[in-house]
């Protein structure tokens, strides 16, 4: 029986090797695609610090495409991990990183920054929106709404109520945004709309550094809650009887999710679908609910899918870039529907 257990583990190793190779390949494919076509030789040279035929090519690769590919990996894996955490915590297959009202909080922050300027007068936004003001507004908004949700969450015993409280805060904030939008100029509404489309590009290396540090803090937290997550698969009463501090674990999970989704939404906008769908794809591929296997699986698959979506969004050889949020849903929703119809059974 132990040998069976081991056999299954090697089986997973194969999955992981395949997915990791795919991830690396897609990472380079993603870098090689764009409105300017650059020969492979020059792409490798610029990445490895070799000699590049044109200086502008090196700039494009190092300052635009590489940061964007890294952002795609961080956003894809981060959102997927948050989705997994939420689905296990709420024992609900429809939960995702945004159920806690994080995206609505971030949207509210950005809406107040962009739309609010016309409603409350120009004092909020005297100059053009700087690079940092959007992430800061988004994080503040996410943090505020999330604190409200967590305070409410600690007052109720039932985990399902937290889910509903999160949803309610979501509709509250979107109502406020509608009111703001009603009193705003079309130009500002457009600017807000563009933010809500999501974007993986335009991050400077300094922003990426901040992003990565916060991301890693979230990931380390997640590794420490693998054990409680597995016990939650039996329900909270069993988890408690197994010596797990349910309340503490729940708070760590909520906090980690908010840190991760907060920072992701701040830098790349509210990106739909990934967090909800990737955990289901991972469970179907790996046929497991064990978080020791699912967490790395979900992270790699999330990164892969967002890299694919971003490559599609660039419309190879064209000058247009489609909004990433539309691609994730267009590409992803049919895949999930197909998987679910074929499998007929969904799990947490």
């Amino acid at each position: 029986m132990r040998s069976y257990y081991r056999m299954k583990q090697t089986n997973y190793t194969k999955h992981f090797i395949f997915l990791s190779v795919l991830l690396v390949v897609l990472f380079f494919v993603n870098i090689s695609l764009g409105s300017v076509s650059i020969p492979f030789q020059d792409i490798f040279n610029s990445l490895l610090g070799g000699k590049v035929s044109k200086e502008s090519w090196e700039t494009i690769i190092l300052n635009f495409r590489l940061p964007k590919a890294i952002t795609a990996v961080l956003v894809g894996s981060g959102l997927s991990i948050c989705g997994l955490l939420m689905q296990t915590l709420f024992r609900n297959p429809l939960a995702g990183p945004f159920v806690l009202g994080i995206s609505s909080g971030a949207s509210l922050g950005v809406a107040i920054l962009i739309l609010g300027s016309s409603v409350f007068g120009g004092f909020l936004l005297t100059q053009s929106v700087s690079n940092w003001s959007l992430p800061i507004a988004a994080s503040l908004g996410a943090f505020l709404v999330l604190s409200a949700v967590i305070i409410a969450a600690n007052k109720v015993r039932n985990t399902m109520s937290i889910l509903i409280i999160g949803l309610m805060f979501g509709s509250l904030t979107s109502a406020i945004i509608s009111v703001l939008a009603y009193f705003s100029d079309s130009e500002q509404i457009q600017q807000y709309l563009f933010w809500s489309f999501g974007s993986l590009g335009n991050l400077s290396w300094r922003e990426i550094l901040v992003f990565t540090v916060i991301y890693l803090i979230g990931i380390i937290n997640t590794i420490f809650v693998i054990k409680p997550l597995n016990s939650f698969l039996l329900g909270e009463n069993y988890a408690k009887s197994l010596g797990i501090n349910v309340k503490k674990s729940r708070n760590i999970i909520l906090l980690t999710t908010s840190i991760l989704t907060g920072v992701i939404t701040a830098f790349s906008g509210p990106i739909a679908f990934i967090g909800l769908a990737v955990p289901h794809i991972a469970r179907m591929l790996f046929l497991s609910s064990n978080h020791k296997i699912l967490l790395p699986a979900v992270a790699i698959i999330g990164a892969i899918i967002l890299l694919i979506c971003d490559s599609i969004a660039q419309l190879p050889t064209s000058e247009f870039t489609l909004p990433i949020n539309a691609i994730t849903s267009l590409f992803g929703a049919p895949v999930v529907i197909w998987l679910l119809v074929r499998k007929k059974r969904i799990f947490v």
Binding site: G235, L287, S288, R345, F347
Partner: peptide, 9 residues
Amino acid sequence: LTERLPESQ
């Protein structure tokens, strides 16, 4: 316990 286990694999 009597409670049903959440669905999982």
